[in-house]
Design a protein around this nucleic acid. Structure first.
Lengths: 83, 83
DNA sequence: GCCTTCTTTGTCATATCATGTACCAGAAGA
DNA sequence: TCTTCTGGTACATGATATGACAAAGAAGGC
């Protein structure tokens, strides 16, 4: 049986702060830390900290897995990625 | 109108060598170079080189974009990723 | 068939840059 | 007080740029 994107397990996404939920789709679209920083007007270092925090909270190994997670959860659709 | 995964543009995938086509889905599943190396019994360095070559041939910036590309093209499905 | 010549492929290496890991700390606000 | 947002340092690991070389195959002429 299929899993609807909106019905998560005990809700990993709720563990993310509002700002982290802003970062997540940008990572998932294939953007690097420098790009994320300039989009949100924060430093690359801060962007990096958010990505690390997201990754740890979601229990993932790298930012590619963050992207795949976001797609699985329906946070972004494949059409809204890079090009 | 929707685009079928099997009808590519002038076929980017044909530019990839057989070995590169083996590497591509592994990248797309969120695996790092060390994992790819041990799966294919080659060194991490060699895996690294293949990923670079794939990325350049496909005109992408990083391995997250490789993953997103592979999903768009239907080379892998979201279900066959990491966990 | 045999001998070049060119190209592709697969392999590994070194060097540099990006990302990840592990913290810390101040400001602002609920 | 507690969380969130922000930026930072220091170091480890992963990713990217580039070079190199051997093996194998295609293509052609002799």
């Amino acid at each position: 049986m299929a899993q609807l994107p909106s019905m998560h397990r005990p809700n990993l996404l709720d563990q993310l702060s509002p700002r982290e939920r802003e970062i997540l789709p940008l990572v998932a679209q294939g953007k690097d830390n420098r790009e994320i920083g300039s989009i949100l007007f924060i430093s690359e270092k801060t962007a990096k900290n958010y990505v690390t925090s997201i990754r740890k909270k979601l229990g993932l190994k790298n930012r590619t897995q963050i992207a795949l997670f976001a797609l699985k959860e329906g946070i972004i659709s494949i059409e809204e990625t890079f090009n």
